Amino acid sequence: MTIATYINPETLPNNPAFTQVVRVAAAADTIYVGGQNGVDSSGRLVGADVAAQTRQSLANLQTCLAAAGASIEHVVKWTILIVDGQSVQEGFAAFMEVWAGRPNPPAITVALVAGLAVPGALVEVEAVAAVPVS
């Protein structure tokens, strides 16, 4: 069952990494995953660069989604915060490794920030997912 419609208006840029608009049908459970940093299960940062931390952030996010009965394919909206001065492109490349060409990419917001709550964290990823109601 398709619960989301992915819309890219013709007058806006089309990008394989994100969709401009995602409409979710009423027959879905909505899951909100709070910001995930590149930390391991003990809370220690994994990697000193934005790419390594992005990979770990996404692994943590996928763990959260699975705990709620969802998967990365159910994500309809990402918010990605990157510490100012870090390479957005390196973070994006790591993100694309994880997304791996799946169809229907979510809507996305990327923002540069002065800092994050976890000391030394360079990236934080949050997500909204929509799972079909059984």
Rank of each mutant, 00 (worst) to 15 (best):
G34H: 15
A100F: 14
I31V: 13
T54A: 11
E90P: 00
Q86A: 10
V113N: 02
G38Y: 07
G38I: 02
R102D: 01
G47T: 11
V50G: 04
A4S: 09
N104T: 01
L122N: 08
A70D: 11
A52P: 00
G47E: 03
D84R: 06
D49C: 00
P106K: 04
T2Q: 12
E90W: 01
P9H: 14
E10Y: 15
I80R: 12
P105K: 02
C64Y: 09
L45Q: 05
Q36V: 03
V113E: 07
V75D: 02
A51Q: 00
A27D: 09
V133P: 03
T2S: 11
G91V: 02
L116P: 00
L116H: 01
A70W: 06
G34I: 09
V131K: 11
S41L: 08
A70N: 02
V113W: 05
G120Y: 04
V131Y: 13
V33R: 13
L122M: 02
I7F: 11
A25P: 00
N14K: 12
V131D: 14
A26I: 14
V110A: 06
P9D: 13
G35R: 07
N37G: 02
A114Q: 10
R55E: 09
I82A: 09
E124S: 13
Y32N: 05
P106M: 02
D84A: 08
V131Q: 13
H74L: 06
A25F: 08
G101P: 05
N60Y: 09
R44M: 12
L45I: 07
G35S: 07
G34Y: 15
S71P: 01
F95P: 00
F92S: 00
T79R: 11
Q20R: 10
S71H: 08
F18R: 09
E10D: 13
F95M: 06
S71D: 15
N37V: 09
A68M: 04
D84Y: 01
P132D: 13
Q56K: 14
L45D: 07
S41A: 07
D49R: 05
R44K: 15
A94T: 04
R23S: 08
P105Y: 04
L61R: 02
A127P: 14
G43W: 07
V22H: 02
L61P: 02
Q62K: 10
A121V: 11
G91K: 14
V110F: 04
T54N: 05
A4T: 09
Y6N: 03
A127G: 13
Q56I: 10
A27K: 09
V24T: 11
P106C: 04
N15K: 07
G101V: 05
Q89T: 11
A66F: 09
V98T: 10
A28I: 04
Q20K: 10
Q53N: 13
V88L: 01
G69Y: 08
